[in-house]
């Protein structure tokens, strides 16, 4: 169990603590290499690429954009709701959001 945590501490982008999930989404959805994915996300967030792993910078941005934060914030978008905002931010479709939309149509 300590092994993945050691990787995250050494090299990871911290997931929704910062912008790791967003960069990962661009690698997975568009096969972007790391540099391109970071540039893409940084441009969408109007920050520099170094800010993407910076919890201090990303906390406020995530809360403002409603794309999910790591701690409980009452009323803040979570789960599917946060992912729908991520779709809009990154200009991509997310399968679970698509399924959700079909169910409520």
């Amino acid at each position: 169990m300590g092994m993945p945590i050691a990787h995250i501490m050494t090299s990871g982008m911290s997931g929704i603590r910062a912008a790791g999930d967003l960069v990962a989404r661009m690698e997975f959805s568009k096969s972007m290499r790391i540099g391109e994915a970071k540039e893409y996300v940084a441009k969408k967030l109007n920050v520099s690429t170094i800010d993407l792993s910076d919890e201090y910078v990303m906390r406020e941005i995530r809360e403002d954009l409603g794309i999910g934060v790591i701690t409980s914030v009452a009323g803040a978008p979570k789960g599917i709701a946060a992912k729908m905002n991520i779709e809009k931010l990154l200009g991509i479709k997310i399968n679970s959001c698509e399924r959700f939309r079909k169910q409520i149509a």
Binding site: P4, I8, T10, S11, G12, M13, G20, A24, L52, S53
Partner: peptide, 15 residues
């Protein structure tokens, strides 16, 4: 005990 990548060089860690 631990080392770390230079700030800005972090990468997604998938599981």
């Amino acid at each position: 005990r631990m080392v770390g990548v230079e700030p800005g060089k972090e990468v997604p860690v998938t599981h």
